[in-house]
Amino acid sequence: MSIAQVEHILVVPTAEFRNLGYFQGFSPDAPRYLKHLLQPALISFRPRPEMEEDPSFKQLIPYVIFEYVDADGEAWVFQYVRGKGQGESRLHSKRSVGVGGHISSEDAAEHLSGNPYEEGMRRELDEEVEIGCEYEIECVGLINDDQNPVGQVHLGVVHRCRVVQPAVRPRESEIIEAGFVPVSQLLEELDRCETWSSICLQALYG
C-alpha cells in the first residue's frame, strides 16, 4: 500500500482525555469531554496503522445503538456479529450492539459541514445499515476500556438511536446474524458480546 492509500483517522491526545477526568468503563458526561476534545487545535488525522499501536492517542469512534420499544414497553436493541472481513480483526465473531467506525480525513473535506465527527458518523451509518423508519438520535455517553489492546487506542462515543419500528437492516455482507433482540436476552448473554457492547448494555439497561 502506498502512502497515499493509507487511511488517516481522527485522533486526540490521550493525555487530554485523562486531564479531563479518567474513567474506566462508561461515563454519561459526554458533552463535557467532547466540547474540549473536539476543538480543532486538539484533533488531528494520522495514519491508521500507526494509531492502532500507539496508546498516546485515542481514536474517537461513534458507537450508535438502535433501540426499539414495543407495544408492551419492552426494549429491543439491534445486534449483529462481525464477519471476518469487517473492520477490527480483534473483534471478529463477537456480538455487537454498536454501529459506527473511524472518522476519516475525508470527512473533513472543505465541501462538507465543517464538523468531521458528525460527517463521519453519518457516513458510517449510511455505509453499514439501512434505516427504514423515523428515528431520533442522541449522544448518551463515552466508553473507555484500557484493559485490552483494542480499548487502549480507542474512545467510544455512544449514541442511542430510537427507531419507531424495528426497521434497521445491514448494508454490508460482513454484518451477519443481524436483527433486534430483547434487551433482557442480551443482558443474559453478555459473555457473547464484545467488551464495548457489554459495557453499554450494563450502563444503559442493566
Rank of each mutant, 00 (worst) to 15 (best):
V6F: 02
V6E: 00
E7T: 10
V12R: 07
V12G: 07
E16A: 15
F17W: 11
N19S: 12
Y22N: 09
F23N: 00
F23L: 01
G25L: 05
A30L: 03
P31E: 11
R32N: 14
R32H: 12
Y33T: 04
K35R: 15
K35W: 10
L37P: 02
L38D: 08
Q39C: 02
P40R: 01
P40V: 02
A41K: 15
E50D: 01
M51E: 12
M51K: 10
E53K: 15
E53M: 15
D54I: 09
S56L: 12
S56K: 13
I61G: 02
Y63D: 13
V64H: 00
A71M: 06
G83F: 02
S89A: 14
L91H: 06
K94I: 00
G98K: 07
E106Q: 15
E106C: 12
A108P: 10
E110G: 03
S113M: 02
P116V: 10
E118K: 14
E119C: 13
M121D: 04
E124Y: 00
E124G: 13
G132T: 06
G132E: 12
G132V: 04
E134H: 12
C139P: 00
C139W: 00
V140G: 10
G141T: 09
V153Q: 02
G156V: 06
V158M: 03
H159K: 09
C161L: 05
C161F: 05
C161M: 08
V164H: 14
Q165R: 15
A167P: 01
V168I: 02
R169L: 15
R171S: 00
E172C: 12
S173R: 14
G179F: 01
G179H: 04
F180W: 08
P182S: 04
V183A: 04
V183G: 02
E188D: 12
L190Y: 09
R192T: 13
E194V: 06
W196D: 11
C200P: 00
C200D: 10
C200Q: 13
Q202G: 09
A203H: 11
